[in-house]
Each structure stands twice: as structure tokens, then as C-alpha cells.
Design a protein around this nucleic acid. Sequence first.
DNA 1: TCTTAAACGAGACGGTACGTCCCGTCTTCTT
DNA 2: AAGAAGACGGGACGTACCGTCTCGTTTAAGA
Lengths: 227, 227, 227, 227
Amino acid sequence: MNDHSVFGVPGPPVPPGDPGRDAAALRAVGAGAGAPEGRPGRPGRRRSDDSRRAILAAAFEIVSEVGYARLTVEGIAARAGCGKQTIYRWWPAKADVLLDALAEQADLHVPLTDTGSYAGDLRAFLAASFALGGSREVAGVLRALMAEAQIDQDFGARFRAAFLRRRREALGVILDRARTRGDLPAAPPPGTVADIVFGTLWYRLLATREPLDEALIGDLVGVLTAA
Amino acid sequence: MNDHSVFGVPGPPVPPGDPGRDAAALRAVGAGAGAPEGRPGRPGRRRSDDSRRAILAAAFEIVSEVGYARLTVEGIAARAGCGKQTIYRWWPAKADVLLDALAEQADLHVPLTDTGSYAGDLRAFLAASFALGGSREVAGVLRALMAEAQIDQDFGARFRAAFLRRRREALGVILDRARTRGDLPAAPPPGTVADIVFGTLWYRLLATREPLDEALIGDLVGVLTAA
Amino acid sequence: MNDHSVFGVPGPPVPPGDPGRDAAALRAVGAGAGAPEGRPGRPGRRRSDDSRRAILAAAFEIVSEVGYARLTVEGIAARAGCGKQTIYRWWPAKADVLLDALAEQADLHVPLTDTGSYAGDLRAFLAASFALGGSREVAGVLRALMAEAQIDQDFGARFRAAFLRRRREALGVILDRARTRGDLPAAPPPGTVADIVFGTLWYRLLATREPLDEALIGDLVGVLTAA
Amino acid sequence: MNDHSVFGVPGPPVPPGDPGRDAAALRAVGAGAGAPEGRPGRPGRRRSDDSRRAILAAAFEIVSEVGYARLTVEGIAARAGCGKQTIYRWWPAKADVLLDALAEQADLHVPLTDTGSYAGDLRAFLAASFALGGSREVAGVLRALMAEAQIDQDFGARFRAAFLRRRREALGVILDRARTRGDLPAAPPPGTVADIVFGTLWYRLLATREPLDEALIGDLVGVLTAA
DNA sequence: TCTTAAACGAGACGGTACGTCCCGTCTTCTT
DNA sequence: AAGAAGACGGGACGTACCGTCTCGTTTAAGA
């Protein structure tokens, strides 16, 4: 397997053991995006996949049209044609809806194809990451999620676990491979490489809002393969 | 002059020529932190400096105690013992209050002492910047401001102009000096150096929330002086 | 049927045919006092009758204690233990709340018993009307409503339709009966009789604030049955 | 002297004895309309008559244009080109400004010419009173004043003393003359006559808002001279 | 087939904060 | 001392959403 899925990798969508109170929270991150099957052997109506998709689409559209500040749960429900409770039942906060919507709308898969060299792998990884931010809508959602992660501590934890950490793990695969191969520079250490790579990327997105272009990829690869 | 003030450098706080309608909005960013002098030769009660300071202190305290999500204009007014209108009169949004509060509470001056080498200058710059983020309260405010800058477009523009750009300009002084001195590496270009430096810094603050430590300074300086 | 209810006479409180968009506004005047039944066969939580009653009671109490000038929607909500929106959802203005509270608290029914003579009917009508104004609280509410009707044009129209007109209609029944019976004086015409009767009553209430006593009843009946 | 001035009759406009704290309140009612002379032998700037007139005119215009609900002290000051303090210095409430504005704008003098008969005097009195209410603007102001008198107890007392009582006194002159002359009916007593006359008049103004026409005069005179 | 249980749409609920308006007071400089 | 100007502390407005709580309805699983 060459690809690394951002969401949904580690386990089955629904924890089979305990459909308890916190199940929604767990499901909502990384798994809410998956199939909406409630545990099979249970009475009662099943989760509506139509609603789920309508909600994600509505959230993505609204945030694209009017921005995160004007994204409200009531607005999502109205556009999706569902009740508010249906949203609160499955996602703990509107940012989680957006996180799932991102996974639904954008291709978050990072190619981890072995290009034969650390520089090549890095270049491919950066190109794919930059492509993501190339979409105005996706960039807006990413900015909103990172912002909300600062404001809502709980969502921050979920965002780190479900999104940021997986990107770092993906980069980790490349670094492992380079170490095995023997063309990984001694410095800086892998953790710092990740900080520099993702830091630069996010800084462009959040602070300068300049496009993520080819030149930057060259510069970053240059800096990280120099020593 | 060796120091570079983050706020208030380029010009006098109050535009001397035209005390026009939008002066309040202008003053509120980066200059609202300055003295609250309405032009003296004008009728009418003067802006209360007591209130101004009470508001900034209240904002900083509240955000330190309960976080940005629970910082409200009403809460600031209540703690500062002033009316809400007094806040709205001088700051366009609560984030602007916080931006001024930051300038009031934290030492935002960056030392630009010439240490004799690019590496030394960079090391000093990073140490001072990291020291800022070392305070739990200041780090919290910085996170909140960057978050709000993503959510409120107008504040984003003010935040970039009043804060982010000035930090880049400070770093620019170091890079200029290195170029003159002749020990600036050919790559990466200055703009990318800034992206990498600030990107890494902010990424630690926003994403990993790991402490900004000595090791990271060494790694960054190493990477940027290698080529 | 001998009695003439001030509110709710012409039809059932809730128009059975069409529960349209403006139903709330209609219900709020003269019918808001009735049962709070949203049509049963509708989804969604029903209107809370506890809240409705608590709001009316709170409004009446506050206005009795501190006067109409210090009656605020926020105060009503606080005392009633409900949200402000619950008030705004069902009444267009605080005066309408008070109008319903009046109907809830005071006996606004006017006895139209046939006493056998115009003078007797009139005397009974006046006695019942005066009794209303005899309560300090009810008199205060009536003054406030008439005042608000002057200041808020829209409420004025509702007040006339829901209160003033119905009183006139009640008096009209007496006049009709007298005409049929043949003991109605030729002059003045019925409309003027109503103007004189209600005018004198309201003038005492609003302008002189003297008690509405037996002597005045005698004088009025005397004047109107003289010719 | 045949005429009876509504305002300013009983005494000199400025109480000569004590220019104390409450002087403004006293002067403001019925006397604020008079000459704006501060006590002559006093240092300091004299009261500006320009401002006084500008304020009264502004108040009358605003209330005519947008109604009493939207009449604010700030609005008056802005249109009059004066400071708010200048209003608060001379009038205790905006309704008092309006009361003075009414006296300034409308002819409130009631003709007490002796027509030779009670019926004739009454007819002339009513015609003059009805003429007042014929102006849309003046009617609006009267409605607002009576409304405010219900809501603000203190203004109510001033309004009764400065306006309502004087109208009653004017009618009292007619009644006295009729008694002397011998053509005053035994019933109803003078107080009730005033209640009926003014009650009917105000009721038309406040409640039915129908025009005050000739027919009503005839009916009233008929009723009151019948017995 | 009937019962039970869950999810659904709808929408009212108690509540918090918003940003605005205006109050009446308090400086400040000018007349 | 009064005037224009205008900032001040304060209170209420009417609105927007929050997250929760009924409602009647729909859909499934188990009896």
C-alpha cells in the first residue's frame, strides 16, 4: 500500500463495544466521514446518509460563500433541510462538521510513492500538499479549522489527532524511508523537519496568504537536503 | 538606534494632518496603544486614559483566565468598569483590544544588536521571539489573534499590518546587515527565510504547542546558514 | 347570552383554517390571551403555557410595582424566568404583553343584562366600567396602554381593535336595545353617546385622576337621558 | 381683558427670589416659553434666545416628521445646532420642551368673549378648542404630551398644572358667567361639565382619532344645555 | 403483525452576547 | 456663566445563535 489516507485508517468507523454517550464525539472525528451505519443489531431507524451528505455539502458551501464567521449550525440545518438535532447528534461542534466536509470534498490523500530519493519524495509530498491549498475553498476551510482549534480546546485536540498528526505521520514515512535508504541528512532531526515543512506551509496559508508555488518547494527541498 | 519597536515605529500615533472620521479606526490598531490624546485644541471631553488602560488590562486578564472563546466585550466592560460604547468607540473589534493589550503587557521589542555574524544575529532574534511565546498568557493571546485573523477578514488585515509585517521587517534588518556583511547564504531568498523562521515558530505555537526551546533555535540557525 | 366578552368574542382564538405566517401577530392581540395551542397536528415543540402565564403575570406585577416607564422586556423575561426571545416570539411589543395581561388579570366582561330601561342599562354599564378603573393596578395598566397607543402607531391600531372597539360595541348593544324599546332619546346620536361616555371615563383616568364615583354615573345618565 | 392665555398668566416668568436648583424645572413649564432673561445683575453669559427658539422649533419639527417615539434629546440638539447640556439646563425632560414648543407654535389662547348666552359661549369655546386639534402637527403633539403625562409622573404633574388646569379654568370663566347670568342648568355640576367637554374632546383625539367637527359641537352643546 | 426504539423534520425553549441607541452627566475649550 | 462639542458610565433594545427539549412521523428489529 502506497497511499496514506488521512482519515479513517486506524480502525472501524464505529467502535463495536460501547455505543455510549461519547460515541458521537469519537465517530465524529475521522470516522463520521465514513459509512453511517449504526450497529446492525439494533432496533430503530438507521442514520440517514442523505442527511449526512447534505450536511457536509451545506457546511462546505456556506463556508465557501460567506466565510466561517457566518457559518452557523442553524444555517447548515436550513440548507441541508434537516433539523439541528441531527447535526448535534453526530458532530460535537460545527468545526467537526467542517473537518468531515473537508475530507469529503477534497482529496486529502498524500502520495507516498517511492521516487528513489529523499529530495524526490519530499518534492512530491510538498507538491501534493500545496495543491490542496491551491483551492480557494479548501484553503479557507483549513484556515477556519486551524483558527477554531485555537479557540476551542476540545476541537483543537480532535483536529490535531485527526488531521495534523496524520500529515506528520505521512511525512514520517518519507523520512523513515530516507533513513533506511541512507540519504537523510544528519540535521535537522525528523521532528524539526516536520516543523519546518508544515510550519512554512501553514504560515503561507495563515499569515502571508501568498500562493504556495513551485519556487517555495525548491527552496524548502534545498534547505532540508543541504547539510 | 538598535531596537525595533513592533508598534508605533513608522509615524506618530495620531495623524497630525487630518483628525477625520476614520481616525478612531486607524488609531485603534497599533496606535490605539499609544497616548489617547484627542487633538488638544478641540472642544469636548478628552478620552479617558484610565478607561483605556483598564480596558486593556481587563481584556488581557480575562483571556488569560478563561480563554479567548469566553472573552466578551460585555465582560471587558464590566471588569474595566466602563460602558460598552467606550470600547466600541475606540476599537473596531475585541481582537483589536487584545492586540493593543498585548503591546501594553508584553515587551514586543526585538533586539537587533549586531553580534558580528548572521548566525549570531539570527540566534539573538530567535531567542527574543521565543521568549515571547514562553509566557503562557502571551502565547494564548498570540494564538487567539492569529485565529481571529482567519475568521475576521478585516481584523486579519489589521493584524498583518500592525504585527506580522513588523516582525518581518525586523528580520529584514538582520538579513540586510548580513548581505552587506557578506555572510548571507545565496539560498534561500530572504522572503523564504522569513517564511521558514516565522512559520516554524507559529507552527509550534498553533499546532504542536510544544515549547520553543534552545534546540529548535540551533536547528533553525543550522538549516539557514548551511548552504 | 347576556355577557359581552371584551376579548375573544368574534371568533375562536386561533383561526382554524390557516395557521399562516402572521398568526403569531394576530394571536398576540386579544387572542394571545387565549390558549396557546399551536395546531396540534404540527411537528415541533408546543408553546409553553407555563411561560405564557408567567410572562403575563410578571408584566402585570412589574407595572404595578414600578410603573410602565420601568417595565422592560428584559425585566419581564427575568422575572418570568424565560428568554427574551420567547416574549418577542409571541408579542410584537411590550404593550401587547400588557394588553393580554390585563385580559388575564382583570374581569373585562361587561354585563349587558336587560334592566328594563335605557337609564338602568346605562347605569349598570357605567358601574361595571368604573369598577374596572377602581383597581389601582388596572387603572395604571389602562393609562399605560392608552399612552403607548399614542406613541406606537401600530400598537395603537391593535389597541383600538382589541379593546376600545369592543367596549363601544358593548355599549352599542345597550343603545340598540333602547332604540328597539323606544326609550332612546333622539339626541345625541349613538356615536356621540359613546364619545361622551368613554371620553368622560378616560378623561377622569388620564387627566384628573379623580376616582370614578357614583355621582359621576348619576350625572352622566342624567345628561344622556334628559332630552 | 377678554382673553385667557394658557401659559404665563399667573405670575412673572422668572421667580425673582431664588434662582436655585429647581428654578429650571419651574421656568421650564409655562415660563420657559417666556423671555429667556437670566437675572440681569448676574455675571456670565446670558441665555441664548437663538438657542431657545432653535430648540423649540427643532422639537416641533422632529415630532411632526417622525413622531414622538423617535424624538430624542440628541436629535433636538443636533438639529438645533446646540449641545445637549443646553437643553438639560433649561428643561427637565423632552416632553417639557415639546410643551413649550406647542405654546410657541400654536395659538393656545381661548376666546372668552361674552356672546350673551351660555350656549353661545360654549359653542365659541368648543370651536376654538377644536380648531387646535385640527392641525395634524398640533394634534400629534397633544397626543404625545398626554401620553408622556401617563408615563412620567413628574411631567404629568407639570402638564396638568400648566396645560390641563388652565383649560378648565378658562371653561370655568364661562360657567361662572352663565351662573351669574342665570342660564346655567342645574345639572350637571360644573366639574362634570368640564369632564364631559374635555373628555369628549380628548377621547376623539386619543381614541377614535376622528376629526373634531361641527356636528359634535352641536351635540355637546345640546346635551349640556338641555336640562 | 405488533411492539419497541431510534433517528428524523420541525420548532419552541432558556440563555448569552451582540452591536446600537439614547440617557443624563461630566469635562474641555470658546464666547 | 453659558454655549457647542463630545466622551463617559449605564441601561435597554431587538436580533442572532447557542445547545436542549419536546412534538409527530418514519423506519427498522425483535417478539
